[in-house]
C-alpha cells in the first residue's frame, strides 16, 4: 500500500497548504476592521506618530466625544441611512429577481435590447456624471427629498442584480416551470412560489453586496441632498474632517459606530446568510 501512503501524505500536505492560504487570506481581510478598532482607541497624535502599533494607553475619548455631541447628528443620519438602505435593498432584490428571471426565460422582442440596456447601466462613470444627474433631478423637483436617493441606489444597483439572477436562472432546469404549468399554476404563482425560493441563494448574495454599497455610498448623497436633516451616514462623517488635518482615529471611531448596525447583523446572521447562499442546491 505504498502508493496509498504517498497519496495520503500528499493529501495531508495539500490540506495544510490550503488551510494556511485561506487563513492568511481571511486574516488579512479581517485585519482592517481590527486595525480600525484599536486605532479608534488612540488619540490623534499617538496615531499620527505610529499608525500601525497597538495603543499603549487605550482611551474611549473618541467615542465619548462623538456620542456626546449633538452637532454630529449621527442618530438622524443613521436613521436616514437605514431607511434608504432598507427600501433600496427591498426594491433591488424584487426588481432584480423579476427582470432577471424574465430576461432569462421569456422570449419577447425587446429582450436583448433590455439586456444590453441594463448592461450599459454598469458602465456609467458616475463620478463625472454627477452634475448632469443633479441638473436632471433639480429640474424635475426631486432632489433633496427623503426618497431622492432611492432612485440612483436602486437604478445603479439593479444591473448587477439582474445579471446575477439572469445567470443563475439559466442554471435552473426549465422542467420545473413546465411541470408547474401543467399542474395549472399561473405565471405569477410559479414565479413567487417556485422560482423565488430557488433563487434565494443568489438573492441573498445580491442583498449582501448591495447593503454595504448603499450604506457606504457617498457621491450621490453629497450632490443630491442639501438639507442637513436628510444626510446619510457617510455625509455626516465628513463633519469629522478638517480642511488641513484629519483626525483619523476619530473618523474611525465614527465609522465603526455607524457600521456597527450592519456589522452586528452580518455577524449575527452570518450562518443563516451563508446557508442561504450555499444551501439552495437544486437537483438537476
Amino acid at each position: 500500500m505504498k502508493n496509498n501512503g504517498t497519496h495520503k501524505l500528499k493529501k495531508g500536505f495539500l490540506g495544510v497548504f490550503m488551510n494556511l492560504i485561506l487563513w492568511i487570506f481571511s486574516l488579512s481581510c479581517i485585519f482592517p476592521i481590527i486595525w480600525m478598532f484599536y486605532s479608534s482607541l488612540k488619540e490623534k497624535r499617538v496615531f499620527n506618530a505610529d499608525i500601525i502599533g497597538l495603543p499603549s494607553e487605550p482611551t474611549l475619548l473618541n467615542y465619548t466625544r462623538i456620542l456626546s455631541n449633538p452637532d454630529y447628528h449621527l442618530g438622524a443620519s443613521i436613521w436616514n441611512s437605514a431607511r434608504t438602505t432598507l427600501l433600496s435593498i427591498a426594491m433591488i432584490v424584487a426588481f432584480s429577481f423579476i427582470v432577471g428571471y424574465i430576461l432569462s426565460r421569456v422570449r419577447f422582442k425587446l429582450n436583448r435590447v433590455l439586456y444590453v440596456m441594463f448592461l450599459m447601466g454598469m458602465l456609467i462613470p458616475i463620478h463625472s456624471l454627477l452634475v448632469p444627474i443633479y441638473i436632471v433631478f433639480q429640474k424635475c423637483g426631486i432632489s433633496n427629498q427623503w426618497f431622492t436617493l432611492l432612485l440612483p441606489y436602486v437604478s445603479f444597483g439593479l444591473p448587477m442584480g439582474i445579471f446575477l439572477v439572469e445567470g443563475f436562472v439559466k442554471t435552473v432546469p426549465v422542467d420545473l416551470e413546465e411541470a408547474a404549468a401543467i399542474d395549472g399554476s399561473s405565471f405569477s404563482h410559479t414565479l413567487w412560489t417556485i422560482i423565488f425560493p430557488i433563487c434565494r441563494p443568489i438573492l441573498v448574495t445580491v442583498a449582501i453586496i448591495q447593503v454595504f454599497s448603499c450604506w457606504n455610498e457617498f457621491s450621490f448623497a453629497l450632490v443630491l441632498l442639501k438639507d442637513v436633516g436628510l444626510q446619510t451616514v457617510p455625509l455626516a462623517l465628513t463633519q469629522f474632517k478638517g480642511q488641513f488635518a484629519s483626525d483619523y482615529p476619530k473618523q474611525m471611531a465614527a465609522m465603526l459606530i455607524t457600521m456597527a448596525p450592519i456589522l452586528v447583523l452580518y455577524f449575527a446572521f452570518s450562518k443563516q446568510i451563508i446557508n442561504g447562499m450555499v444551501a439552495g442546491a437544486v437537483k438537476g
Partner: peptide, 21 residues
Amino acid sequence: ENVLANAEYKTQIQTLASAND
C-alpha cells in the same frame, strides 16, 4: 445652514454653480 467639510464643500458648490442653483 448647509455645512460640509472643505473638500466636499468645493464639490457641491461647483455642482450648484453649474446648475445655476
